[in-house]
C-alpha cells in the first residue's frame, strides 16, 4: 500500500545461469491503477568468456568478499585492464550504496592496468548478500560491465 506521494523500491534480480548472449526480461507490475500493467525492462549481454573481454578485462570478474572468521574483511581490490588503444574513463552508474562503495581511478590508460577498491559500509559488515554494481565506459559504445559482489558471513 502506497499513500499518495509515497515511494517504494522494487528490486529485480536476474540470475544469469548458463544463458548466452543477450537476455531481456520484462517483469509486469500489477496494481490497483488498472490495466494495462506497467512494466520495467532489464537487459544484459552474458559473457561465456568473462576473462577475455573488450575494451577492458575485469579481474576477478566476480568479487567475493566473504568473511569466515572473526577477522573483519571489509575491503578488497580488483584489477581493470584496458586492452584497447585509447584511454578510458569508467563511471559507476548503479551501485547498492547502502552496502558498499567502489573507488575506480579517474583514467585507465591504453594498454595499462588500474587497481580499484571495493569497501563495505559499516552497516553491511554483519550481512550476507549477493548484489551487483555496474560501470559504464566513455568509449563510443558506452560499454557497460556489471560486476557481481558476494558476501557470506560465517563466524566461528
Amino acid at each position: 500500500m502506497l499513500a499518495v506521494g509515497d515511494s517504494t523500491r522494487l528490486e529485480i534480480i536476474l540470475h544469469t545461469k548458463r544463458y548466452k548472449n543477450k537476455i531481456i526480461k520484462q517483469p509486469r507490475i500489477e496494481s490497483n491503477e488498472g490495466q494495462p500493467d506497467k512494466t520495467v525492462k532489464i537487459q544484459a549481454e552474458i559473457l561465456i568468456q568473462p576473462d577475455s573481454t573488450y575494451p577492458i578485462v575485469i579481474s576477478p570478474y566476480k568479487l567475493n568478499i566473504s568473511q569466515f572468521g572473526e577477522k573483519i574483511r571489509d575491503e578488497m581490490t580488483f584489477k581493470i585492464q584496458n586492452v584497447s588503444d585509447q584511454d578510458l574513463k569508467a563511471t559507476i552508474v548503479d551501485i547498492p550504496d547502502e552496502l558498499f562503495e567502489v573507488k575506480i581511478p579517474d583514467k585507465i590508460k591504453a594498454g595499462k592496468t588500474a587497481e580499484a577498491v571495493l569497501k563495505l559500509r559499516e552497516g553491511s559488515l554483519e550481512q550476507s548478500f549477493e548484489k551487483t554494481f555496474t560501470i559504464e565506459l566513455n568509449d563510443e559504445a558506452k560499454t557497460r560491465f556489471s560486476i557481481p559482489v558476494h558476501r557470506a558471513m560465517r563466524l566461528p
Partner: peptide
Amino acid sequence: TLFDFGYAPQNAKLTHVFWLHSTGDDTLKI
C-alpha cells in the same frame, strides 16, 4: 523503466532497484 546491465558473467545474480511512486489521488496498491 529500462536498465541495461551491459556485459555480465554467467551464474551470477544481477540486481537493480527501480523506484515506484504513488502519484495519483488515491492509495496505490501493488
